[in-house]
Design a binder for these strands. Sequence first.
DNA 1: TTGTAGGCGTTATCAC
DNA 2: GTGATAACGCCTACAA
Lengths: 346, 346
Amino acid sequence: MKPVTIHDIARIANVSSATVSRVLSNSDYPVSKKMKEKVQRIAKELDYIPNLLGKQLKENKSMTIGVIIPTIVNPFYSSVIFGIEEIARQNDFTVIACNSLHDPTLEEEYIRTIVEKQVKGLIISSISTDKTLLKNLMKTGLSVIAIDQKIEGEGISQIEFDYHRGGLIATKHLQSNGHRRIGYVTSKLDRPSRRSIYQGYLDAMKSADLEPLVEESNSKDVYNAVSEFDTGKKLTQKMLSATNPPTAIFACNDMMAFGVINELWQQGIRVPEDVSVMGFDGIDFGQMINPQLTTIKQPDYEMGKMACKMLLDLMQGEDKPMFDVMLQPKLIERGSVVGVPIVTQA
Amino acid sequence: MKPVTIHDIARIANVSSATVSRVLSNSDYPVSKKMKEKVQRIAKELDYIPNLLGKQLKENKSMTIGVIIPTIVNPFYSSVIFGIEEIARQNDFTVIACNSLHDPTLEEEYIRTIVEKQVKGLIISSISTDKTLLKNLMKTGLSVIAIDQKIEGEGISQIEFDYHRGGLIATKHLQSNGHRRIGYVTSKLDRPSRRSIYQGYLDAMKSADLEPLVEESNSKDVYNAVSEFDTGKKLTQKMLSATNPPTAIFACNDMMAFGVINELWQQGIRVPEDVSVMGFDGIDFGQMINPQLTTIKQPDYEMGKMACKMLLDLMQGEDKPMFDVMLQPKLIERGSVVGVPIVTQA
DNA sequence: TTGTAGGCGTTATCAC
DNA sequence: GTGATAACGCCTACAA
């Protein structure tokens, strides 16, 4: 059964398809009242469903935005998407969500596909180091907002997060609780954001005249929560075998911090009584574990909303002004960090 | 700058647009080798990007599937989507993800939108009780797979999960550990799936001649992890104030179970030594808390993959056979359930 | 092997 | 106020 078109309606109503179009698209073009009612009635009777493809082809826009993130399974990114979708919906846009799985090839494939589908706006947490494709597409009219991953020295509007400052704040918080042997566990330092947190840690340690103690995972990027957790456990084991183990451990993300806590408990080391633990991200689950995780909040949901707002602005504006936003970290104090235990204190 | 079309290429190559189309769409229509190479070369030089809208309008298909779920922020659903997207990608489909936020109006709005965008396949965890819209659309060629929420007595292919059996298995597991006073905490019983788990619990208790002990939240449906957690805490408080509090608590989902555990700890009641806790869902975070959560695994990722496979089959097949799948629950034994403590036994 | 021409469903320009 | 008609970019009979 072929779908009903405006021509079908026109035939039945004995009017031209032009009139039908004017009525059904709520054009401000003048149409007599009775004609309008007639068309609307018939459209309803026939269960008319407009074919947006025709409209979009004509108008060269798709009311769709694309979002490319490493993986939706990471609760940080699902919150981001959630925020994006909320703003998109309010503006009658739908969103195509793509998981790049940390794979540059896949990322590029997705970019191509959505551009072919005439998507004119893209929010991306890019994993690829080669931005030439993106920049070329931008020349042809694609609007892009980069989130979460800083794209260095390019003409792309971005929402950054002050990772360096986050690392700094976290470390200083530990220090202000009297900790001097503070370990840092991190996934592979292959992304600018991770390097920034790390640098923040390093700078805080240096300015307090403390010796850094770092464990870095060398496994390639992964894309599920459990492996982050496992990495946290593994790195903690390594760290504990040091000659002078830390009284506080700072993890590069919350999931890894969960692993740290779990490993400590398993070894009979109490958190936070014996060792304090600090996370990074501020995902909701941090308040569901015991002890609740002290962490640095990265505003995921808000970041999504803001990214989408910026993108829609960008797509509308003729002049397309370039602007960046730097979101600030916020310390969330909960139960996993306390003062350094007396017995081990210097 | 107008985008490059096949006509532009045709003009420059001194061939017809038909030939260009045949080359660039990898048609098996015969084209001479040198013509082919020429066209490909020019297409490349001009950075030609096909406009899928034209093709789709012509062929009346969009290579897109829609997914409607309550909220992507729930890790169960993000895993489902993750599975869906994986299969979709392998088949060159992209997915439009929509959060219905437990709002039937929004759900309907999304259904309309994607159908207008000529999406021919939909995977939905429907919240609406009125399925007439869906059924009407199916008559016009929309393929639908219902997941997670049983749609009673309708002609829609679905992937069900045996919630009743899950509730049964969970309760029996508690019983086989010697527990006789087993409490059940649940969100509002306004969805078939929840009622099924509840019924499983009830049946297991009855067949063991035990008295049910139930706390139901009366708050309306919510859509974030933290409120489930809070509900778990609140209901636990209520349950503990009973004259004869339980030695085991079974929660209708993992997030709520986290709340149960948290509240117990906060009241100085040890888990699992004093009270055992059983969850339901099997999200990854269950293994990251302390003690690790014993739970019923609902295969989220696999459900997504299967749903997408079924959908693609359905969309291809001319005859569109109807078939349902019933996924089976699986007990995951971890640390939050142990035998009933001696002192409170009998 | 290549070209011509019509149509997919819509909107917009121009006549009437 | 209404109706032809020509686009939008692509594919595909059919003709050459």
